[in-house]
Design a protein around this nucleic acid. Structure first.
Lengths: 137, 137
DNA sequence: CAGCATCCCCCAAGATACTG
DNA sequence: CAGTATCTTGGGGGATGCTG
């Protein structure tokens, strides 16, 4: 979560200062929306609309309430999700993807279609890498 | 990396069996191409083409050789990157993004443009969340 | 219901040092 | 050059238990 950028320690072996240390533009986004649970949570919110805590919990299947809370807080903090608290008895809380969060939709769609099209290729590559000692080595 | 799916433990609080435990299609892809270093490595390979170990190391700036090796191995195993070893003295190894890996290009482009367009909004949301005790609570 | 509090585990990633 | 070998750590995530 904390990106230790700006630390010019250059790590052990001296960097001769030549050859561009280019910055990858997508890196910051990874912390925001792409990790084990943030993506599924966002995805679910985007697909099924406004939902209560338990609904999310159940749809996500294996997530624990603690983790769900953590991710939701992070997403709320980053402005991707809005939380509305209804002071009733029993309490009711609803989560909804924000305007900003919704702009991630196309990306998710792209990822889903990539997965659909290519994940089996990945798995087969994985198998052949494991079975053979390594194809060309 | 290991996705503990299929464990129907349902975690602590009983799931009443109602309400769909829908599976998020993007999840498997996260392990493959979206984590702290796999994405930057893939990105760099996609942007700058075939490169040697050191070139990658330098362009990525803060990555350690150990981690770079680990990620490259995983990417090779998953068929997203190809490794060619030239038995010379000194040894030379070149990494190149594969056909399969290249199909991730559009996704990366989409992510980069999203970052460009919306990351400042995220950061400002983050700031206002931190400064105020929370906007509407 | 919607959580927070705790304790624990695991592993990606950092630091550092050493070879074929 | 292109790694491998250790040691260590941070924090995400699981398991359990307790409240407003």
């Amino acid at each position: 979560m904390t990106r230790t950028l700006g630390a010019p320690t250059a790590g052990g072996r001296g960097i001769t200062a030549a050859l561009v240390p280019v910055e990858c533009e997508v890196t910051p986004l990874l912390d925001v929306a792409f990790s084990r649970w943030t993506t599924p949570v966002l995805w679910t919110l985007n697909e099924f609309g406004r939902q209560r805590f338990v609904e999310l919990e159940r749809r996500l299947g294996t997530i624990t309430p603690k983790v769900l809370t953590q991710r939701l807080r992070q997403l709320e903090r980053d402005g991707l999700v809005t939380r509305t608290y209804h002071p009733e008895v029993p309490p009711r809380v609803e989560y909804e993807i924000s305007e900003l969060g919704r702009t991630l939709g196309p990306l998710f769609a792209g990822m889903a279609s990539w997965a659909k099209d290519h994940m089996d290729a990945v798995e087969s590559a994985r198998r052949s890498y494991d079975e053979e000692g390594k194809p060309g080595r």
